[in-house]
């Protein structure tokens, strides 16, 4: 059986909000090391990979592997019934067909319980190759989100170029073109505003901005984001969690 407790429901609410627009039904695999999810978005352009390590829970128990087949939107709907600072417990018996969620307000002696029906989902998993990326950029998650939002007013695609001078985002559409360039920098006072670039060779890739905008909904999970790119390959975009991560593998636009 699975029993996992979080001190604040907001932790799971934010994670589910970060993936719900992309995913429909998918399996969450639970074992003694934690919870994991891997699923493609409906258009197969983004692969979402979530890892919630058992250390990230205030209490965690999973004696035997449990697969939770869930509709992510249904999970989001139920989580909306929890207050952000409620204590949240996830429970599922072995071979059960439901996930039990309890939301506790320790101050008000309130306990709510919801049973979410589980589904049998026949899901395929992809082998994510171990890759040495040509460029790795660590930057503020909020700044990346804002930059992409600004450029989405111009075009449905953004081109990202990374070289030793910095990272450049550009877009061109009917009304004109625009770009934002960031140089590598260290901000001693606000470390999350630093821009760190590690490069083995310059790289340039183009991406759909609507999907990128969905990915950056994870900005509430982490102050920084790690963007990794290699020419002609999907980008890896990672938001770190206290014990785990949300990663997105994002297929680029490619010249014929």
């Amino acid at each position: 059986m699975l029993e996992a407790k979080l001190d604040a429901a907001s932790q799971l609410k934010k994670i589910v909000e970060a993936i719900r627009d992309m995913l429909g039904e998918c399996n969450i695999e639970c074992n003694e090391t934690g919870l994991a999810l891997q699923s493609l978005d409906k258009s197969h352009i983004v692969l979402v990979s979530l890892l919630l390590g058992s250390d990230g829970f205030s209490e965690y128990r999973c004696d035997r592997g449990v697969t939770l087949g869930l509709n992510i939107n249904s999970l989001a709907t139920v989580l909306r019934c929890a207050n952000n600072d409620d204590i949240l417990t996830l429970r599922s018996e072995d071979r059960a067909n439901e996930l039990i969620l309890t939301f506790e307000d320790s101050k008000a002696d309130r306990i709510s319980e919801f049973n979410l029906r589980l589904m049998d989902i026949d899901q395929e998993y992809l082998a994510i190759p171990e890759t040495e990326y040509a460029a790795t950029v660590v930057m503020s998650a909020a700044v990346l989100q804002r930059t992409l939002r600004d450029l989405s007013a111009l075009s449905e695609a953004v081109t990202i170029e990374i070289d030793k001078e910095g990272i450049r985002f550009s877009a061109e559409g009917d009304l004109g073109k625009g770009s934002t360039h960031f140089k590598p920098c260290v901000d001693m006072e606000n470390a999350e505003n630093s821009i760190n670039i590690t490069l083995s060779e310059p790289v340039s890739l183009s991406f759909n901005l609507q999907y990128f905008s969905n990915i950056t909904k994870a900005s509430s999970l982490s102050s920084t984001v790690t963007l990794q790119m290699t020419a002609g390959m999907p980008a890896q975009i990672e938001y770190k969690l206290p014990s785990g991560h949300v990663r997105y593998y994002f297929a680029p636009k490619i010249e014929d």
């Binding site: 258009s43 352009i45 395929e124 998993y125 999907p234 593998y249 490619i254």
Partner: peptide, 14 residues
């Protein structure tokens, strides 16, 4: 114009 690739063209099924 460039075409949108899918993840399936890069990552194989397990």
């Amino acid at each position: 114009p460039p075409k949108q690739a899918t993840i399936m063209s890069f990552f194989a099924k397990k």
